[in-house]
């Protein structure tokens, strides 16, 4: 197992945002994390990446306990992430943004090697023509790719993607899906939060579902899609129910 989340709970005052969640990830897989808004998905991410310590429970990454570690420690161990709301370093160029990722990531590169890695990664995510632009000037889709590029430049063992598809148009979603598949081909394990159901159902090897902080279902995409508790959790959002339950549509989905 590359990552083992064991009985993790996170409380904010009286609110239990993540409630006794346990998950395991095998090396090389893509695990999809879904759930209605406010289910605690991003909070779980933040507990794993060290943004804040979990209230209780343990997180083991490549054999080491990381619960309560600082974000930079976790990042340097090879666990990179993207942000749901993009956080570009606005006054630095696109290239400099990615060099930060490369130089301070797992390989701890010097500037020169970092720049080389950055150029490769920018080529890979399709931002090669924008390297000298200020990051703040990019559009949303480009900023999402920049987030991804920074995380990849760290040469991580594992990648946490927080809604990288949100806000993209259909063509951009298709492009991003190809990119994510290519990342997996490169041997990187992926844990992704996603709202676009057909995409996450299609990409993931396994799916876990959070609702009110609790893990309510886990399994192969087809099985999860027909789980009654999952359907119930999504009640009130008919579009999503349709997508979740319509397994045929998933199989036939061109993406």
């Amino acid at each position: 197992m590359i990552l083992t989340v064991d009985h993790v709970t996170k409380r904010f005052g009286g609110l239990t945002a993540v409630d006794d969640v346990s998950v395991e990830l095998e090396e090389g897989m893509i695990l999809g994390l879904i759930g209605p808004n406010g289910a605690g998905k991003t909070t779980l991410f933040n507990c794993i990446t060290g943004v804040y310590p979990p209230t209780s429970g343990s997180v083991v990454f490549r054999g080491k306990e990381i619960a309560g570690s600082k974000a930079y420690t976790v990042a340097r161990m090879g666990l990179a992430r993207t942000h749901q709301i993009v956080r570009p370093l606005n006054d630095l160029t696109v290239r400099e943004n990615v060099i930060v990722g490369a130089c301070y990531g797992r390989e701890n590169l010097g500037l020169r090697d970092g720049a080389k890695v950055a150029d490769e990664v920018l080529e890979f995510v399709g931002l090669a023509s924008r390297t000298e632009e200020l990051a703040g000037k990019l559009n949303v889709a480009q900023k999402k790719r920049l987030e991804l590029a920074r995380a990849l430049a760290a040469r991580p063992h594992m990648l946490l993607l927080d809604e990288v598809l949100a806000g993209l148009n259909t063509a951009e979603v298709t492009g991003m899906l190809d990119t994510i598949r290519a990342i997996r081909e490169g041997g990187v394990t992926i844990l992704m939060i996603e709202h676009i159901m057909h995409a996450v159902m299609n990409l993931s090897d396994r799916i876990i579902v959070l609702d009110y902080g609790k893990l309510i279902a886990e399994g192969a995409p087809e099985a999860v899609a027909q789980d009654e508790r999952v359907i119930e959790a999504y009640l009130g959002d008919p579009d999503i129910i349709e997508e979740v339950t319509d397994v045929d549509a998933i199989e036939e989905d061109p993406t």
């Binding site: 930079y72 990042a75 006054d91 630095l92 301070y104 797992r106 010097g110 500037l111 970092g114």
Partner: peptide, 26 residues
């Protein structure tokens, strides 16, 4: 300014939390 250290500082200036998420020991 031209060093890796300086780049880390500038990352902190732009967004300290994001910089830490990328491994900068702020």
């Amino acid at each position: 300014k031209k060093s890796k250290f300086g780049l880390g500082l500038q990352a902190i200036r732009e967004d300290e939390d994001a910089a830490e998420d990328m491994g900068v020991v702020a």
